[in-house]
């Protein structure tokens, strides 16, 4: 390809294409890279710093999710600085957040050898918000990855109900001007829930089932169907409990050409009619 060029990753030559990020190249080369905030359909927030790499000529480490590859770049992912920084990011998060519904985060932390007890101090206590019929917000689990803000904003929904408020350790996600979701501009599309990496945002159904100890992933089949509400043709994944035959969750495949994983309130939450008809 005309726009292909070479970069060095840990001393090995790799092909990059114009417009690609360093992370794109790392993934193609199958260089394991921890990530938390970056998402295939959202603008890189470069906020979590889990994916930092050493770039020759750059004083600080750079976020590979955001930095575009350039010809001749020399990238290191295996240096002590990179390992220390990545491990540090996870140790800092483990010192503040409840990660009980963030298995991916916990797994990455473990594989980096992060010590959950390294840092002690104030936990992130932003509270549990249960103010609407469709999803709950448990901000003690929020790592401020900005995904929900971007999904709610110009990357997907253009609703702008969610934003970051406050600063430093006290920064947090706020709906509207710190009020409740129903009072905000929220349209309950649930696209924020779809991209939340830690379970801080969770569909009410899943939250209730978990609270009752009845959330059992291994019992759920995924049934593909097309949303019947309008003519757009969004692909739905119905997560169906094969024993009770109940739908417990609706998602859309992130790689689907029409939805890119995003839905509207009807597609994501308007599924109880299926069960009503079954009775």
């Amino acid at each position: 390809m005309a726009d292909a060029f070479q970069i060095l990753i840990d001393g090995h030559e790799a092909i990059a294409h114009a417009g690609e990020t360093i992370l794109d190249v790392l993934r193609r080369q199958q260089v394991e890279t921890p990530t938390l905030c970056t998402h295939e359909h959202l603008t890189p927030a470069k906020a979590c710093r889990a994916c930092v790499v050493e770039l020759k000529g750059s004083r600080a480490l750079v976020a590979s999710c955001e930095r575009k590859a350039e010809p001749g770049m020399e990238v290191r992912t295996d240096s002590e600085r990179v390992e220390n920084a990545r491990r540090g990011v996870f140790e800092l998060l483990l010192s503040q957040n409840d990660v009980s519904t963030a298995p991916a985060l916990a797994a990455q932390a473990e594989s980096l050898g992060a010590d959950p007890g390294r840092y002690r101090g104030q936990r992130y206590e932003k509270g549990f918000f249960d103010d609407n019929q469709l999803y709950v917000r448990d901000y003690d689990k929020c790592i401020l990855c900005y995904r929900c803000v971007e999904a709610c904003g110009p990357d997907v929904q253009n609703t702008f109900a969610l934003t970051v408020a406050g600063r430093g350790f006290d920064a947090g996600i706020a709906a509207g001007f710190g009020g409740s979701l129903p009072d905000s501009a929220c349209v309950f599309c649930g696209n924020c829930v779809a991209v939340c990496p830690t379970g801080a945002l969770m569909d009410r159904r899943e939250h209730s089932l978990r609270a009752e100890g009845r959330w059992q992933e291994d019992r759920y089949d995924v049934v593909q169907t097309t949303c019947s509400y309008c003519g757009v043709g969004c692909q739905l994944e119905l997560h169906v409990d094969r024993e009770s035959n109940e739908i417990v969750k609706v998602t859309s495949p992130m790689d689907h050409s029409i939805t890119h994983g995003f839905l509207c309130v009807k597609g994501r939450y308007g599924y109880s009619f299926v069960e009503a008809g079954a009775e």
Binding site: G88, V89, L92, L93, S95, Q96, I143, R167, G168
Partner: peptide, 21 residues
């Protein structure tokens, strides 16, 4: 620094708080 960190990135947001503690 803990007060003035904007809160965007983890190393600074959490790090400045842990450092202050």
């Amino acid at each position: 620094f803990a007060h003035e960190s904007c809160g965007q990135c983890v190393p600074c947001r959490v790090g400045t708080r842990r450092q202050h503690e």
